[in-house]
Design a protein around this nucleic acid. Sequence first.
DNA 1: CTGTTAGCGCCTTCAG
DNA 2: CTGAAGGCGCTAACAG
Lengths: 361, 361
Amino acid sequence: MTTQTGQPGGAATGRATLKDVAHRAGVSVPTVSRVIAGNYPVASATRRRVEKALRELDYVANTHARALRGHGAQTVAFVLKDVRGPSFAEVAHGIEEEASRRGRLCLVCVSGGDPARELEAVHLMRQQGAEAVILIGSVRDDEPYRRQMSAIARSLHQSGSRLVLCGRPAPGDSVPATVVEYDNEGGAHAITSRLLAAGHRRVLFFGGDAELTTSAERLAGYRRALSDFGVPFDAALVEKVPFDRGEAYLSMRARLHRDRDFTGVFALTDAVAAGALRALAEAGLSVPRDVSLVGFDDVPPATDLRPQLTTVHVPYEEMGRTAVRLALDRRGDGPGVPEQHVLLGTHVVVRESVAPPPKAD
Amino acid sequence: MTTQTGQPGGAATGRATLKDVAHRAGVSVPTVSRVIAGNYPVASATRRRVEKALRELDYVANTHARALRGHGAQTVAFVLKDVRGPSFAEVAHGIEEEASRRGRLCLVCVSGGDPARELEAVHLMRQQGAEAVILIGSVRDDEPYRRQMSAIARSLHQSGSRLVLCGRPAPGDSVPATVVEYDNEGGAHAITSRLLAAGHRRVLFFGGDAELTTSAERLAGYRRALSDFGVPFDAALVEKVPFDRGEAYLSMRARLHRDRDFTGVFALTDAVAAGALRALAEAGLSVPRDVSLVGFDDVPPATDLRPQLTTVHVPYEEMGRTAVRLALDRRGDGPGVPEQHVLLGTHVVVRESVAPPPKAD
DNA sequence: CTGTTAGCGCCTTCAG
DNA sequence: CTGAAGGCGCTAACAG
């Protein structure tokens, strides 16, 4: 590595170091360092020579050496299930924008929804000394989850970093973590209420693995709305289907083959709604004339559907931005009052997919 | 930092270091290192004590120190315009999957399409000593671009890293960069030919900034198809519109207001097609009965459109994977034969949005 | 089997 | 204004 030829300045291979630059400029290493930092007096003749050498050798500082020396790595890390999901992508975008606004680089990992992979990713990020580790998306909220998150939060906290939980529940009180959630239950309540207010009484809750917090919370909102309207809950109207548009299509097709005992559908996500819509259309059912349909997420493709989807807006991008902001601004606080919890609002976006149920009930 | 209390093992703040662990286990630092590496004989009694201390102190290695010591940072870096674009997201996913399969962490930056921001990102990534720097997406292929990319490629190459250009042209020959492109021109030719073969003669080329390579190449394919079918090119049938669905909608609405002098539309991307479709539908034009419409990209939401979009499939995810694979496998090669160039194939996916033009021509 | 020594690239004292 | 010395955390050589 560097110049082992004895000849100063004849960089052979590898990146040029301060030493190489110093040799070439005929000065000492600290002088070069000072020219770069610019926060110390250096004779302008010297400075010019150094700057020339810097340019000629195409010098770039070594972040690792810098991180080792003092100021840790200026990085923000995050883990998500899959960047291809539009809602995840929005969160990621928010994180990246806010991080880069603050001069930070981002580390990403995808977990594919596998908790073990997520843990592994966290481990790598811890090794990197990331300033914040942001974990995104729904989980099974069980004991192991809480225990693990608490442990991670504490480890990170102790090493001067911060765990941020985004769109997933806090693992318990007095755990030094930042939690940024959005109002799943409220959004689900509001959108279900729309359907109910329009006169629907048989509303299919379509999609979701009840084990996952997102599904559970949306289901809870659905049930509360039902109860507000005095409509009894019917377990037969809860259809369990994966998050995916293709699966959703198949699932709705099967359901329609079995029965059509509903006039409204609350799809767990916009993508699921898209799949459902296709099955509905193929079955000769018109939305919203025969069946009303709503989604959740308000991702851009929701406006490409015909009819355009009435759905719940979730501030995903803001969630990402907030995660970074809170984690970074909180740095330097002592161990006092370590928890932080933010709940972002959601709201219904009315478009074209809801109408009163058909008369012939 | 670390344990300055004099009391061994009483880690106060900051992450535990090998020294802390060594103190607590009553051994020397290298011994701990050896236990961790596991590639050296250590007495099992000692090993157990060390492992206990490791656990108790919640030790994690410091990547920066490791990177500094020898084997550089095990990271792959990439820059893209915006993760929210489905096609970009697919590339990103391919990169992340392949990188994590090889135990690498990913560094990301978004540029917003601004070359200056992109350059800045590259600089940061160079400082990080990333094993590969992958630049994704369309560019203006001018002299400054080529010069800059060549310079970056050479710098990176010299420091043992690698520049990968993904979905953008090579900056010239004998530049030590890896280029992974896909066949824009061929895809555009094929899909335009579909329209032409169905009998269309007035095909609107809808969307795109001709300055950008992607647009230019797709336009070239369109023109070649025209020429193959003996249809004269008409500049009035080239509508310049941004990549965005919303802009596309507005643009198509305006166009339809002006004239309807076409029976087929080749939208530059699926998102643009979605916007166009909406305007078409609102104008009372049925696709494909009145107008045929095709897109490019074959992203998942293309199947949510009604009718489902006939489009060109682009292997975005594979592009990402290939980028990582080539960059990492090529490491250790000498300076000989440094260029690498891969052109991935594209193909038409026939769905429902193309039909013969209406009879009443 | 284990400890001592040295140095990766950088920056911050401290002396000139 | 500039150089010499030391150390961040880790690992690879060498001793013992």
